[in-house]
Amino acid sequence: MSEGSQLDFFTLLGLEKSYDIDQAALTASYRQLQRSAHPDRFAGGDERQRLLAVQKSAQINEAYETLRSATRRAAYMLKLAGHAVDTSATTFQDPEFLMQQMQLREELSDLHSAEDPEQALDRFYADVDNALRSQRQAFQGFYELGDYDAAKSSYAKLQFLEKLRYEAEQKEGELLDF
């Protein structure tokens, strides 16, 4: 967990440092790494070796989970660039995004009364996923240009959209009687 002495997650997983990553390559090297570092490999070893393996394996898991998620990857890359984000204090000056948020929120709260909630839910997911996709592209563009303030703002928007998606998933449970 202590930074500095350790490899960054991209290097650890043998990937180019880029927002646009090859998910299949990520998963393949993740599994390969766990094969060599997982504590099960040292079940017969001494205590210290097992502890070391637990730490290493946890680090590999963290790297994988971070890079696998487009939103967490964005936050991590900002941190690598020396622009760590403070998630608690974000306000938006972007009317277009606020409008989109309001529309999506409305869509979410109307799901209950939709004629076919399942279909409405699918449509909602599609809308959120579209918004996520374009926000990811925006993030990548700003990041590559070195416009970290804009990239941070894109990241905050990604978080908002992810939160909406999470809320929809919760709602899906209630709606479809899981």
């Binding site: 570092a37 205590e47 210290r48 070796q49 393996a53 290493k56």
Partner: peptide, 23 residues
């Protein structure tokens, strides 16, 4: 155990490098 700690760490790092190279 304490004396072998560095060695254990280097081995772990080496095996991880090897794993990636293999991939």
């Amino acid at each position: 155990g304490a004396a072998s700690e560095t060695f254990a760490e280097r081995r772990m790092d080496a095996s991880i490098k090897k794993a990636l190279a293999g991939r």
